[in-house]
Design a protein around this nucleic acid. Structure first.
Lengths: 202, 202
DNA sequence: GTCTATAAGCGGATAGAC
DNA sequence: GTCTATCCGCTTATAGAC
């Protein structure tokens, strides 16, 4: 299926990212070869190097772009305009929806950190730190206003993020529970865990 | 540093497990070579095959033994003798302590599932299912007795396990919080998240 | 932009000496 | 039980033709 004539750089670039993301998530970065990515894209291995100088860069780009998009999407919600409780609920819904829609991005962003070289690792960690800070800001506001009963903002933030992100490990679109039901259950769970007053309807 | 004479099978077996566990956790199964394990153990690569028929078996054994030990340790606590609330608190303490003491075991048991061949995968999953069932049993008891306010036992169990296991990703022995302080925070967090009445002192 | 060909080395695993 | 030597396939990455 070689298609040297009629080749299309933009389409190939898109396909490489798509295939690499899928394979890295499925098998892990170290277990996927450039040949395998190329085969699935429908080009020869050498062609991949027109789009990334090496395999490491391909991984790093996928992770950094994901984290940047996540941060932008959350910022676009303007959560600072909401009350702490509403902002927390908005965060729960946002996080679940964004992550359930992109399970492969989530998976590699948590699993492949150790395969990043130092410089790329630092970039991704900084972006993750910013995202954690967004949740901490909400918890802090609610804590100061005595709306929440939180023993430690940092630990609570880590715990909430872990449980929300964990949804992607077991959620199946055709499972027992609909996504909206899961969102409802987690909203209750998180509100209860921060000791918020029984919530008005979501 | 060859030591053919004076070689000691039992000691080597122990060291192989120790080194393989450490390296798999650090770099991931696929990124660690048998040669690298051998080098760190202080033997030649061929010698490893006296202890495992292949690399896959080495990984599977580490994971299965960890899950079996985890289950035995929990069973030894006889949680069914406790009230649901006390059992839940016991579970939180047990899980945090057991996992914080064995971060590498925990890490590979969650991260390397995808590198297990079908048969080994099934074994590990069955053991994990049993452990999840132990927590669900507590939640069910408390729910039936109207001690807990739980929207869905399965989702709540997954959420609690995710947040507890997540401790190992950020806990550092010399960090801001002592382990006992973290245990206290998580106990409150989990009790609040299941809607349990404000707890007596732990 | 993609191909073919190839460099240079590492991978898991085995055979047979000691 | 461990070593040395080895098979051979697969790895990332590059060079140069088209």
């Amino acid at each position: 299926m070689a298609r040297t004539t009629g080749s299309n750089g933009e389409e190939t670039a898109r396909r490489i990212d798509e295939v690499a993301l899928k394979l890295f998530a499925q098998k892990g970065y170290a277990a996927v070869s450039m040949r395998e990515i190329a085969r699935e894209v429908g080009v020869q291995a050498g062609a991949l190097y027109n789009y990334s100088p090496n395999k490491q860069d391909l991984l790093a780009r996928l992770m950094i772009e994901h984290m940047e998009a996540l941060l932008s999407a959350w910022d676009a919600q303007n959560p600072s305009l909401l009350s702490p409780l509403d902002a927390l609920k908005a965060f729960v819904l946002f996080h679940i929806r964004y992550h359930v829609e992109r399970p492969d991005h989530v998976f590699i962003s948590y699993m492949e950190l150790r395969n990043l070289e130092a410089e790329n690792f630092a970039k991704v960690e900084e972006l993750r730190r910013q995202y954690e800070a967004a949740l901490k800001a909400i918890l802090k506001r609610g804590s100061i206003d005595h709306l929440f009963n939180i023993a430690d903002v940092h630990v609570t933030a880590m715990a909430i993020l872990a449980q929300l992100t964990g949804v992607t490990t077991w959620y199946r679109a055709k499972g027992r529970l609909s996504q909206s039901k899961i969102e409802e259950i987690y909203t209750q769970l998180v509100c209860q865990s921060v000791g918020a007053q029984p919530s008005e309807e979501v």
